[in-house]
């Protein structure tokens, strides 16, 4: 009798743990970055894709570094991130099939609207970063190996500055969280334009510097290599990548607006 009761318990537990979404619908797991998720792009684009193809896209949002790590472990089918060197390394190591440019946006430097470091006068992004450091003003860093964090480190290097000290806050948080912190602490922060545009809690902060080609922020899309992880939903993943690069996908990306602004620029010219 004990054994039978135990059997019932096991069966119950198994029933609880069995995914209830064992429907006919196909789906893929997309590992992507907080800058894309927080901007709201996926809310706009993915329903269109699902409607066109019947494939559901489940987005797990992490910093670029962690997103690639998740894919390395085989826990995602497709990655959509923005750190070209890391992406190329990912493919070179055999974890990804190939990297495709899919869209871009640009980074902007956010700070108090009073512009205490005169960033609006700066000619290059590196000069702007140098001004912040020389004025000893606070700077909030993502500090999480995300694409934005990597871009920020590149800018510091171009400015010839090693960012250390009490005014440099490495927060280890997502894009939105970093913006929240910067607004609360009257600090500067590097953000992608999309997240900033969709960010609702701006306080007295504003874009203080933009437009330098050094702030160009390309996004790549990569299918996780099924040779490395045989369970990867490669067919559905290919459908997703092909769609994102197709006129339909590119138009969906180009059609995403926050107010009057288009935070992401599709790579296909005719979709721009």
């Amino acid at each position: 009798m004990m054994m039978r009761a135990f059997g019932h318990v096991l069966a119950f537990c198994a029933a609880m743990l069995t995914p209830t979404t064992l429907t006919a619908q196909e789906w893929i797991t997309l590992s992507s970055t907080t800058s894309v998720e927080n901007s709201g792009l996926f809310d706009h684009v993915l329903p269109i894709f699902t409607r066109d193809t019947g494939i559901e896209v489940r987005v797990v949002t992490q910093g670029t570094g962690q997103a690639l790590e998740t894919a390395r472990r085989g826990d995602a089918d497709v990655v959509l991130v923005h750190a070209r060197e890391l992406e190329e390394q990912f493919v070179a190591e055999g974890y990804g099939v190939a990297r495709h440019d899919v869209m871009s946006n640009e980074f902007v430097i956010i700070g108090p609207a009073t512009d205490p470091a005169n960033l609006r006068e700066a000619r290059t992004a590196a000069e702007a970063m140098r001004s912040i450091a020389q004025a000893r003003l606070r700077f909030v860093s993502r500090g999480d190996d995300s694409g934005t964090h990597i871009a920020e480190q590149r800018l510091w290097a171009e400015a010839g500055i090693v960012p250390v000290g009490r005014q440099y806050l490495s927060t280890g948080s997502g894009m939105g969280a970093a913006l929240n912190i910067a607004v609360q602490l009257d600090a500067h922060v590097l953000s992608d334009r999309g997240t900033w545009l969709s960010f609702a809690n701006r306080g007295d902060h504003d874009i203080l510097f933009e437009g330098d080609p050094a702030l160009f922020n390309p996004y790549g899309i990569i299918l996780v290599n099924p040779d490395r992880h045989p369970h990867v939903r490669a067919a559905e993943g290919r459908v997703f990548i092909d769609w994102m690069l197709s006129p339909a996908g590119q138009e969906a990306i180009g059609g995403f607006r926050i107010g009057p602004s288009r935070p992401f620029i599709p790579v296909r010219r005719e979709a721009r």
């Binding site: 995914p19 797991t29 472990r73 826990d75």
Partner: peptide, 16 residues
């Protein structure tokens, strides 16, 4: 995780 001992169950990122 797929690279973990129970990866084959495909349960990561699910309610289960």
């Amino acid at each position: 995780s797929r690279s973990g001992p129970l990866g084959a169950l495909d349960l990561l990122f699910t309610p289960s």
